[in-house]
Nucleic acid binder design. Structure first.
Lengths: 210, 210
DNA sequence: GTTAGCATGTAAGGAGTTACATGATTTT
DNA sequence: AAAATCATGTAACTCCTTACATGCTAAC
């Protein structure tokens, strides 16, 4: 999210809220990285990964796959497996990443910036962290932590203005929400420390760290 | 979500994923219940309430308000406040609930069922819990808890099939996700107990509870 | 031999964001 | 006065779900 100043004084926030399809593309590339798969299986894995909440519909998955085919990020191979069967049968389509797809995956994974630490995007990136190096990992983890911290600050600031007559339940909900975010910040901090230690043990210890 | 059996054996899930607009309608009714407000303020309050994640855009709020006006759930009154000012100025519109709106709010709040314990819907309903009675509150809290528990079970089941070669980061993400849901279940359990105690102290103690 | 689950699609339609547009008031 | 923020809209476009459509395979 960037803030733009329009021709008069007013402020507009311009989008790039990371379309769901983009997130899915990245996830597909990541999954296929581990080996060929067909659509149906992809969908199951995807639902398990991003699954908190709504499930991925076929109406989203298949068109995305087609689009990736057109962009030749992936290739399909019709499973003509069992020799006896006639070819006319509806084939199971197995997808695999192409060279270009691998490069695109690597490019996306090494992107550092807002798109990397927005809710859904972060999850996917994190899931495939093994495919990046520590430097990127640290930057993404820290970016996300900063983002959450900002969110907390904003909420706390806004809350101090309205709170006054807080309703019992509304207040409880707020508290629970803040709690959840704080907990995620802690989780991130632990991960960041773990990354740093990993770095330290395998290379010469660097005593001072920012 | 209901499961329908089509003309052949296949299963279709039919929707009602609670449009965002519906959630907002409920929230607007709830907020106006506390007193008249204009759109801009409504938006701020709404963002603070549902705020985890995307913000509510004017492009969603104002049309929703218009729609509610048409349905006469709310009324507008142009603030002609300061006597000296000419009427031609762009007026600030203050909204308030109508009789019908109040009834609708009460109807929605006493709804018990899936729509009451889906993620976003639950939050809104919870925030306005003060406007319902304990019986409803308990049913909604328990409904939500059951839902989350089911989600946990499903995930655990699915995980046990795939887990085998769990990647370090993918695994960590799963663990964190499960943790979050488990924590919410605990939160709900505490609230349920609190409700029950509330009920017990104010009426004759009922020794056995299901 | 029927049910359930695996497997692949697509067209229509709706919901909601984005970007544009403008005016009033308060703060610096 | 300029800048920020309060305040109210709307049209176009985009994305995604929904619902329909079909076929194969394993299990009961």
């Amino acid at each position: 999210m960037y803030r733009l100043f329009g021709f008069r004084g007013y402020i507009t926030t311009i989008g790039r809220v990371a379309r769901r399809a983009e997130t899915i593309e990245l996830a597909v590339l990541g999954l296929l990285h581990e080996g060929p798969m067909h659509g149906y299986e992809l969908r199951k894995r995807l639902n398990l990964m991003l699954g908190w909440g709504r499930v991925l519909s076929y109406g989203t998955l298949y068109p995305t796959l087609k689009k990736m085919l057109r962009g030749s990020l992936i290739e399909e191979s019709l499973a003509t497996s069992t020799p006896g069967t006639p070819v006319s049968k509806r084939p199971r389509i197995t997808y695999q990443v192409t060279e270009a797809g691998t490069r695109e995956f690597e490019r996306l994974m090494s992107e550092v910036g807002p798109t990397a630490w927005e809710d859904d995007n972060f999850d996917i990136r994190f899931a495939f962290f093994s495919s990046t190096d520590m430097e990127i990992r640290l930057r993404v983890l820290e970016g996300r932590r900063t983002r959450l911290q900002e969110r907390l600050d904003r909420i706390q600031r806004e809350l101090s203005l309205t709170q006054a007559e807080a309703d019992r339940y509304a207040g409880e909900l707020q508290r629970h929400g803040v709690d959840r975010v704080e907990r995620e910040v802690m989780w991130l901090s632990d991960l960041i420390n773990a990354e740093r230690n990993l770095g330290n043990t395998s290379s010469t210890p660097t005593p001072e760290q920012a």
